[in-house]
Design a protein around this nucleic acid. Sequence first.
DNA 1: AGATAGTACGAACGGTCGTGCTTTAACATA
DNA 2: TATGTTAAAGCACGACCGTTCGTACTATCT
Lengths: 190, 190
Amino acid sequence: MILETAVRLATVEGLDGLSIGKLADSIGISKSGVYAHFESKEDLQLATVDTARKLFTEVVVAPALEVDGLERLRRLCESFLSYVENRTLPGGCFFAAAASELGARPGPMKQRVASNQRDWMRLLSDAAHVAISRGQLRADTDVALLAFELNALVVAANAAFILHDDPSVIARARAAVAHAIAVATPDPAT
Amino acid sequence: MILETAVRLATVEGLDGLSIGKLADSIGISKSGVYAHFESKEDLQLATVDTARKLFTEVVVAPALEVDGLERLRRLCESFLSYVENRTLPGGCFFAAAASELGARPGPMKQRVASNQRDWMRLLSDAAHVAISRGQLRADTDVALLAFELNALVVAANAAFILHDDPSVIARARAAVAHAIAVATPDPAT
DNA sequence: AGATAGTACGAACGGTCGTGCTTTAACATA
DNA sequence: TATGTTAAAGCACGACCGTTCGTACTATCT
């Protein structure tokens, strides 16, 4: 429960702005009660990142793993957008916030976030590769480029949705994702 | 000088993480010396956002205003990518960092950052509109969608460049921008 | 029954935060 | 030369930070 609250709070206050006192108050226990479970604040932060990964895997990744190839690629984007739209976390995607906060500050925290980010990109790339091998995407598709584009679209939707409280950007992102995939689709005339 | 240093520091530590003491030390004066110029910390933060806007206008916007239409659209993206690639600010784009930090925290700071973000999107949209009226882009182009796509690409490049210290993502973003624009270009066969 | 480990508490520590107040030094104007 | 303005320093305050400590209560296992 501590860690789930920490994940939620961290998307609003930031991983650094999240103080042990506020976290304890928000759960209803004392600071010492929190501290009994972790050796230091960094220890808590690392555990928070791991918990966020588990949540992300359940909510975003798992639904997409039920299918393969192009459909998996579509579902990865779609479940990410739903995960943002449903306000699963109050501050939007945990890793988008963490990456922006830790990007310029080297250390174990940054490494772990960067590693999770790479895993996510690989998920997109692998799905695209399978889609190509099945003829669902054109053989000359630049996989790294397509993964970069799709990730950019959904992450930008996350940022704009949180900043402007505007649900229409999610719809726009859905259109953009569909468009980006359509462009890489084999020409039916051939 | 205080404000320029504040902009630089804020991209690394965050607008909230930037403390008056650290700022003063980093300039070489005392806390009181900084405080003599501002009524409160929020006052300083607001002034910092305005200074960042001025810098952004000089470095990214101004070079693009020298030309019109499609070429302006291209230059807006290109000068943004250069602004990130050159490490003009150590933590990448100031507004990308600020938007992510303040997105879930209402207040005057968030409003000002959101307003600057809207101005930037309008800059992209207006340039695209002119490009359409000149026949440089297809008449049925969805301007809001194109602006969303281009912004997503350059902002994602910023985040990935900072997080992974990988210059190749800038090249990938350049390709993605060129691709997105090419897709919206009139069919030469017609 | 008694030792052990896990969980939570309240109090306190050194440090840093934002913010005031008072004083010093520099400089422009008369 | 005298005066007023202003940037900066120095100091002190209350609040909050992460962290540590001593102390309970509650299970589990011997």
